[in-house]
Design a protein around this nucleic acid. Structure first.
Lengths: 314, 314
DNA sequence: AATAAATATGACATAGTTTGTCACTATTAT
DNA sequence: ATAATAGTGACAAACTATGTCATATTTATT
């Protein structure tokens, strides 16, 4: 095997192993210790963050960093990745421990000069607006880990001014409109609930509660599996052209849009009783572009809300 | 210079030059033609997409692909980039010519096996929800290019059921809530306007109109530069705790939020007369969590809209 | 204090690779 | 036809990589 290939494979191998001795590598590659030592020095010079300890139980270690092998991206692909990283800068918190600026810089600096010029020219001409996240959420990683490992945690949760402690078992986490949510099994209410991560004041691991079996449930399938035997209403909404256009941008899975020839349309589907409040707020934003035909309860809630607002101005 | 280093530099150089002859490279690197030929063959085998043409004016060319040099990312950084690419899959259209799946796959396949395992475990447990884009927009790249090059274009634009042709000079493009917008100087109305890209039916270059000087204006500074001498109103809105929380997620630059000790607050700022419609819709979504104190016109618009909706149900 | 397990470095002969040169072929625009 | 370009093969010379051996250094364990 040529030196170049060996070095390449060595990068992968040390990335994978994280901890190894010179002798191990020498045996695996079938070369002498001396050669491995020389190779490791070259890798160091190439920027692989190696560090070594002498003595028994010593050996080499790779620090946290990983070297990606060279990847062939097209010009547009490289630029897109740069802007994707840039676009997500508004997420103050992510369940990963990263610094946007450092990622962006690394990527930018590794592109060749002329592509950097292209990026510089585009930078002030394209933007992705997002709703800003208001505060940092320190527990995201803990919640994600609990979801992956199927562990139970105790959270201190603040809702409607009341603080409660409850044991929950997270299914996953998701971000929507600048907020992070954590759908979970709640041992207090013995039911599935969605918690807002920014309302959690503390997260501790709960050793005493035995996890329930959620291994088949994840973010994608949780609706179909969990929404049995809950009280639902039949929804029926008439939409104008504008209303149709507006609904298309959300297009929820249990509310079907039916379009007519002339561009108008109507919605049919089932909604949970529990969510009446949400849907009333939502359809108010349609103004005259949505007319609720049913359920009766939804219409009443909307009328009530509108009257309350109107009263503010009389 | 060692062969390995030369090959590395050669990757950069051919990425940058795109087009070159054997002789050029031989001179630049100070080696013989024969060596360069052998090197280029190796680059080919390494995956650099080279192709050559013989004869006068022939030479080598690199196809669209670019080889990134190996980059050191930390484990969390590599995972984050993967999920960033994943998160933006909802953008049906981008001003770049890319295939998400192919980018994602390339990136994924170049990570080492154990990190792929981490991604696989996380994949069903984290999600980013976005408003879906309804349709593909074929003109984004053209609009972006016009903004960069300061060129005038003729668009066929559909608004309120009417179709108009107008010459515009784009300042840039931005995405918001699943839609793309193009703020531009409009030669028809002789004013700055924001166009929705999905309402453009065609985009042609306009050779006859002389561009105006927008070189100092870009997406970030356009508000402060362009909003002189327009008719504005003074806005004053009282907010409940919930209202404060809600406003924080948008926090527009010309409407200031003032918080009180008890968590409530109020908004002060100026709004364009032209935007009354937008703000009335917006503050209706606050329900009882926002009470408009002024301007009078905004209050009247809101009352009117609410009454129209209420009338639908009586 | 001794030992063993590890890294670290230098010198040198040998094995292996890379390079330049030269002679030649093939293709294509002018 | 001619000139400019890529492409191939053979071989000696120049250079690089490797293994071996000797030796130093550090450190956990006994």
């Amino acid at each position: 095997m040529s030196k170049a290939k060996r070095l390449n494979e060595m990068i992968m191998m040390v990335n994978r192993k994280k901890r190894f001795t010179v002798r191990e590598l020498a045996q695996e590659f079938g070369v002498s210790n001396r050669t491995i030592l020389r190779d490791l020095q070259e890798l160091s010079e190439m920027g692989v963050p190696l560090y070594s300890e002498v003595g028994p139980h010593g050996g080499y270690q790779v620090l946290n960093e990983r070297i990606l092998p060279p990847i062939a991206f097209s010009e547009d692909e490289a630029i897109s990745i740069f802007f994707m990283i840039h676009a997500l800068r508004h997420y103050l918190s992510l369940p990963f421990d990263i610094e946007y600026e450092s990622i962006k810089k690394k990527f930018y600096l590794n592109l060749s000069g002329d592509i950097r010029d292209v990026i510089d020219r585009i930078k002030d001409r394209v933007d992705f607006l997002y709703i800003k996240q208001q505060e940092e959420i320190p527990f995201l990683r803990q919640l994600l880990d609990a979801a992956i490992q199927q562990e139970v945690i105790i959270i201190c949760y603040e809702a409607n001014g009341k603080i409660s402690y409850r044991s929950i078992q997270p299914i996953g986490i998701y971000a929507n409109e600048g907020k992070w949510y954590c759908p979970s099994y709640c041992f207090l209410t013995k039911d599935y609930r969605v918690f807002r991560c920014d309302r959690m004041k503390s997260v501790e691991s709960d050793e005493n509660t035995i996890p329930v079996d959620l291994s088949k449930i994840n973010l994608k399938n949780r609706f179909s599996i969990l929404q049995h035997n809950k009280e639902t209403f039949e929804l029926y909404v008439e939409l104008t052209n504008k209303g149709v256009e507006k609904y298309q941008s959300v297009n929820w899975s249990d509310i079907a849009l039916n379009k007519r020839e002339d561009g108008t349309g109507y919605l049919k589907g089932s909604i949970l009783k529990h969510d009446i409040n949400f849907y009333s707020d939502y359809f108010i934003t349609y103004g005259r572009d949505a007319v609720i035909k049913g359920p009766f309860e939804l219409i009443e809630t909307i009328k009530e809300k509108l009257n309350i607002i109107l009263k503010q101005y009389n």
